[in-house]
Nucleic acid binder design. Structure first.
Lengths: 348, 348
DNA sequence: CTGAAAGCGCTTACAG
DNA sequence: CTGAAAGCGCTTACAG
């Protein structure tokens, strides 16, 4: 066994050791290259032995293909994003792409991070985030990196985006809650400058107004559990209490449920219905059992990969259907018609 | 306004346009380089105008510094990891590093992903994960990339690692539960091949045995909510029920609480105490209010950055203290001495 | 099937 | 303070 070299082994080292040109070594690593079967085998054998692996950076410089997909994520605190990140990254890898991740502060400036990211020449950029100005679109355009917004409908119509039908989803949720007897709807907003918030709010409000109901809005300011709690506190301690609350996202709704039951002693869904949007894993936990609108994450990730594969497709926003998931925090029929023994027994 | 070039602008383009050498352009971007103040200003102005930015790949090839930190994460489903990832990435960025993320399947092979990652020549690799063989250590050593295990004590003692005091943390948790009256302890294991699981189990068991108690172990097989539920089902439907359960992680404990209260009608902490480890955000939610052992994530991330800064420090495992967080799922004193009105009122 | 050579976009001694 | 030149580790026409 030879002594381990102190420097990383390069293509030259291998060429020298085998007495062939560097071109031959390079060819062994390209399936489509013209090279003798035996030569390739010998090269690969020695490469494995020496721990040689072509340098992706050097390769990228020539081919112009870095196989890097840059992902900007702004809010890892909201469990929806880790979920998407895991799914996205898992789909990217078999397609031969690596994920370069930049974490931006929620609501903070994304551009410095984006620029740093772009200096690595990602082949594509995906923005997995909340509020972003059109600055990002321009920055990527200048760097000639195709950009996709995920879960955000950008203001610029020529940008590409994959989102779910927030409007329709929130609308069907509203109708479900109205059928359950909601008379005084309220909506807890997260960040007001996000398209998800705006669309969900509008979908909810439009459906409520169609039924003659006025929606009260309470601004939570951020998509966090604590913000949902605070918004619910304000909502429930005011004069006329809502009897149905939609959170702009699950994490807000979960905070609201908590305050309603624990601090205001309300029975859910009897005294108050609560629902969210996203369908994060916690919403399905029996302890929460939150009615929500499910984002079709798998389909959204699939579309993202399709976009990467057939880049030439034109811009625009792709909107996938969302699905209403009815769980225990909303009623199917008005509470007045129910009897008391609907209450869950806590004892075995 | 000049027409936008169809190709990305390079150092040559700028040099040609300004009538200077490429070296001059390059110098403008290096604070320590010898260059006239006026020249630098002019270069930077034109660069901004043309959207020029030095190519990080080309730069990396020469300097040998890619400013990339490769992170392998194996279990984004467990909320502990997104939390760490956000914290780590946020700390890395101001230090001038970008995060290259590889998501490996929990329990799956990590080596192919790691190799791909290494081809980008990260300056450091961080493994944020559960079960990894010493293969990763060898792979990184061959590529000459310093590797750090985060939240995992590697088998090879010469590898570097930052972990928390799982043993001590689990021990103090056990003593707290014993003081609360636990007589029949049980431990829900996640993946048995992880150091976190092994150390927490051992810490819990040792402390229990010191008090003359035998710990029953139930294998959940994975660190997920569903696995925690299933383990609790087996644990509680057997002949002699435990009166205290520690989950190897919060996510397991949360699943166990759920089954205990909802399916077995147990009152927590009166009939059964449950606790976890990690202190993920959900554990602090009032709906869960889970007693747990907090990992010092901030301190762990700080130590990781210190390691990156002063690389020459030798290997070994750095073990940071963990903190017991007592919440509502455990008792401070035995249940027998309590009265019935300790039960929480659910009405206002 | 293989090699010599140019070149990707930069950085960095070395002169001047 | 600036430029010419070598070179980082590869890939890829172009010959042969």
């Amino acid at each position: 066994m030879p002594s381990r070299p102190s420097q990383r082994v390069t293509i030259k080292d291998l060429a020298r050791e085998m007495g062939v040109s560097v071109a031959t070594i390079a060819r062994a690593f390209h399936p489509e290259a013209d090279i003798a079967v035996a030569t390739r085998a010998a090269v690969l054998r020695l490469a494995a032995e020496r721990g040689y692996q072509p340098d992706a950076l050097a390769r990228s410089m020539i081919t112009g293909r870095t196989r890097i997909v840059g992902v900007v994520v702004a809010d890892l605190e909201n469990p929806f994003y880790p979920m998407v990140l895991a799914s996205l990254s898992a789909a990217l890898q078999p397609a031969g792409f690596n994920t370069m991740l930049v974490v931006a502060e929620a609501g903070g400036p994304v551009d410095p991070a984006l620029r740093l990211l772009l200096s690595y020449r990602p082949e594509y950029a995906i923005i997995l985030a909340t509020n972003l100005t059109t600055e990002a679109t321009r920055t990527c355009a200048a760097a000639q990196v195709p950009l996709l917004y995920f879960n955000r409908a950008p203001l610029d119509t020529d940008a590409r985006a994959v989102v779910c039908d927030n409007l329709g989803g929130a609308g069907s949720l509203a109708r479900h809650m109205i059928a359950g007897g909601m008379r005084h709807p309220a909506f807890i907003s997260g960040r007001a400058d996000t398209s998800t918030n705006q669309e969900r709010h509008e979908g909810f409000r439009t459906a409520c107004e169609a039924a003659g109901l006025t929606v009260r809005e309470e601004a939570a300011q951020s998509f966090t559990y604590a913000a949902g709690q605070q918004a619910a506190r304000r909502l429930l301690s005011s004069g006329e209490r809502p009897d149905g609350i939609m959170g702009a996202s699950d994490i807000l709704a979960l905070g609201a449920v908590d305050v309603a039951t624990r601090e205001f002693g309300l029975q859910i869904p009897r005294d108050l219905m609560v629902a969210g949007f996203d369908d994060i894993p916690m919403s399905a936990w029996p302890a929460h059992d939150l009615t929500t609108v499910q984002q079709p994450v798998t389909a959204m990730v699939e579309r993202t990969l399709a976009w990467i594969r057939d880049e030439p497709c034109e811009g625009g926003t792709l909107r996938l259907p969302a699905r209403l998931i009815i769980r225990g925090t909303t009623r199917t029929e008005p509470a007045a018609e129910r009897t008391c023994n609907d209450m869950k027994e806590e004892r075995a």
